[in-house]
Amino acid sequence: MKIQHQLKIISNKKITDKLYHLVLEHGKLAAQVKPGQFVEVRIQESLEPFFRRPFSVFRSQKAVEIFYEVRGKGTGILSSQVKGAMLDVMGPLGTAFTLPAKKIKQVVMIGGGIGVAPFMALSDALKNRGHDLLLLYGGRSKEFTFNMAEFKKNGCKVFISTDDGSVGVKGRVSELFDKIEINPDTTMLYTCGPRPMMASVQKFAQEHGLKGQCSCEEVMACGVGVCLGCVVKTTAGYKTVCHDGPVFDLHEIVW
C-alpha cells in the first residue's frame, strides 16, 4: 500500500484563536483511513521544522479533514499554508479504534482539548448502529467547544466541562464520569487527550471493571515504527505510538 501522498489543500480555516480546520483533497487516502488512525504531515518542503507532524484524522469522508491547535513552530507554519498548496502526507498510519460489539449499549467517548478530533471519525462510523453515543468533553474554555454541534448531528449526547467554567461544568472531565453507565458488559470507553486525563479514565475504568481504548500522542520522527522514538510504557514493555498505537487498550498503558 502506498502511504506517501501529495494532497492539495482545499481549505485551511481558522475556527477560533488557536484552532484550525484543514481539509485536504480526497486523493486515495480518505477511503483508507479508519477512525483513530493518523497522518504525518510534512509542514513544508524544507528542513524546518524537521519532523513531520502527526495529526489524527478528524473526518475522512469526501476529504481528509484535520483539526489542529497552533501550539508551536510546526502548527504555526501549517496555519499559514493556503488553499491550493500541496502537502506531503503519509498515511493512514497506526492502529484504529476497535468498533464496539453489537451488545455494547453505551459508547462513551472522553476527549480532552484537541484530543476530541478522532472521535468525530469514530462517531461518523458509529452513528445509526444502535449504540447510545456519549461524548464527555473537557476543554480549557469555550473556544474549545466549537464543534460540539457536529457530534450532536451524529447522535451523540454531549456533556462538557471547562477549566474556567465558561461552558458546562467547571472543572475536569472527570466531573462528568457520573454519566457513564457502570456495566462492564455493555459499556465501552474511548479516550483521547492529555496524559493525566487518560490516566484518570483508566483509573475509573479499572475501579469499575470497564473496557476501553485510548489514543496516545508522542513526538514522532518516522511515523512507521522504525525509529522507536515515540514509545510509551505498557504492561508489555515499551511500544511505539506510531505503529503499535496510537490506539491501545486502555488498561495496557502504564502512565
Binding site: 528542513l47 524546518e48 521544522p49 524537521f50 519532523f51 508522542e218 513526538v219 514522532m220 520522527a221 525509529c227 522507536l228 522514538g229 515515540c230 514509545v231 510509551v232 510504557k233 515499551y238
Partner: peptide
C-alpha cells in the same frame, strides 16, 4: 531501550537516545 522521551527535534536534525 531508554526511558522516553527518546527523540527531540533540532534545527535541521534531531537528537535521539533510543
Amino acid at each position: 531501550g531508554n526511558l522516553p522521551p527518546r527523540i527531540v527535534e533540532t534545527p535541521s536534525g534531531m537528537v535521539n537516545a533510543i
